[in-house]
Design a binder for these strands. Structure first.
Lengths: 258, 258
DNA sequence: CCCTTTTGTGCGCTCTGCGCTCAAATGAGC
DNA sequence: GCTCATTTGAGCGCAGAGCGCACAAAAGGG
């Protein structure tokens, strides 16, 4: 006679949904959780959480240490399913490497998840020539990053406003734009320019440059971005030199994206 | 009268386990799956898979496009739970940046998952000074990488043998060691040396260097690694110069790891 | 040492979700 | 365009999975 949150839609596997929420209950500052901790964080009954955690442990996604549960590296496979699936990572790597070498800065590819930009591929050019892929997972707030504005430019203005309204917008640096109307205008700008540049809005000294990555059909699937340093001399000219190269690469990549 | 794989252990949430296997059914070359595809790949009944996929979609982890399902960026949150939780990423970042600057090469931290080494943190030093974290997810075969050997050195020899036997060991370069006995010996070597070096075993021209990262209690929690180029002159001396710095940093880091 | 609070777990009952089934859609062949 | 074959979507009755109560066992607190 207690909780009846979902009226059993008959096509919804409650146990699965609850399990996923348990995985997400881990996170910053919650490396290990006891059954009771996890129950509190998810709002589920302790017995339920216990079964779910033991299931995770049984499958190797978690480890039991006394009464504390910890996720194992295996959970990365779940996220990896997405990355490997959206062949972005693998398909794009040679292009990213080439572009990175050309412009002398690390380049990356990101997609939109809610109000965050999520990085899914990256290539760096660290003086040393051994190409080494490390990708995935990092999140940035969409409103304050060039890539976020490019990605949001694929949405309708009303949707952009709605998302902005639903996000905490911190003034991360003095230059960060946080006003909803202003941001919508910047997204519109990105739409018509076919690129976005963010000057020290995310971090002092950091300039973000992003262009949309479309497929042959012309639908935007991701954003191609790079950064440069605002404090070095001639940052402006540098950005102006980089932009056409990013766009040229985006055009080439469009041919190979499904 | 069909499948009865698990006799209901009473603490195992089947729906959850099956759901996770559905997520993993996506992956390289399987960006989008129909209900039937996913059913075949997981070996589950179509009706079951359909419910699970619809559940994923309902929660925003998947998107429906006609009869094809696709994972969304939200699944990265699941893996991210692990990364954020194992504060490795955040805690280590300043140390990694310092080390990377000191030795002039990208450095990274990895953990063991089964037979793979998984990267969980990284810092690069790409000429530009803007520190930018991109981490997570990349996998390498443990047997052929320095970090893998260091990480396996925390296991008992018998366990190492067992894992090696259960892995396909390709000769990725002429230098790759693939013999089980030889590899066990190398792991033992890593254990007594407190480090491992892999000369062009993973990729031609690439030298991997790894040391264990322990916590105060002395239990190994990860591996700290870097790479250098085998073809540049004096690679050997360079490795000899880098090793003590890696070890010194590992000692410092041990103080801050839980 | 007793009492309070927190945590772990057994177990009966109900409601979930399984997987049979059939219907609808798709498409192949003529 | 019609028929047949095949694939996909859903309804529904039944059984047993898993819910959550309630008790037990630790873990403090005074």
């Amino acid at each position: 006679m207690s909780s009846r949150p979902i009226p059993h839609s008959r096509i919804f596997v409650t146990g699965f949904a609850r399990g996923l929420s348990v995985i997400e209950a881990f996170g910053a500052g919650h490396k290990s959780l006891s059954v009771a901790d996890a129950a509190q964080r998810t709002g589920l009954d302790r017995a339920v959480v216990r079964r779910l955690l033991l299931t995770l442990a049984g499958l190797g996604y978690a480890r039991i240490d006394g009464k504390q549960f910890e996720l194992t590296g295996k959970v990365l496979r779940l996220g990896y399913s997405y990355l490997a699936a959206s062949a972005l990572d693998v398909t794009l790597q040679p292009y990213l490497a080439e572009l990175s070498a050309e412009i002398g800065e690390a380049v990356s590819v990101s997609v939109l998840d809610g109000n965050d930009v999520v990085f899914v591929a990256r290539s760096e050019q660290p003086g040393n020539r051994v190409a080494f892929v490390v990708s995935m997972g990092m999140r940035l707030p969409a409103y304050a990053s060039a890539s976020g504005r490019v990605l949001m430019s694929a949405l309708a203005d009303s949707e952009v406003s709605a998302r902005l309204r639903g996000t905490r917008r911190d003034k991360r640096t003095p230059a960060t734009v946080v006003g909803e109307r202003e941001l919508v205008k910047l997204v519109r700008q990105a739409r018509s320019d076919g690129h976005a540049v963010s000057w020290e809005e995310l971090e002092e000294g950091l300039v973000g440059i992003a262009v949309p990555l479309g497929n042959r059909g012309g639908t935007m699937v991701a954003s191609l971005n790079t950064n440069t340093n605002a404090v070095r001399a001639q940052a402006r000219q540098r950005v102006q030199r980089m932009l056409p190269r990013l766009k040229a690469m985006a055009r080439r990549v469009a041919e190979v994206l499904p």
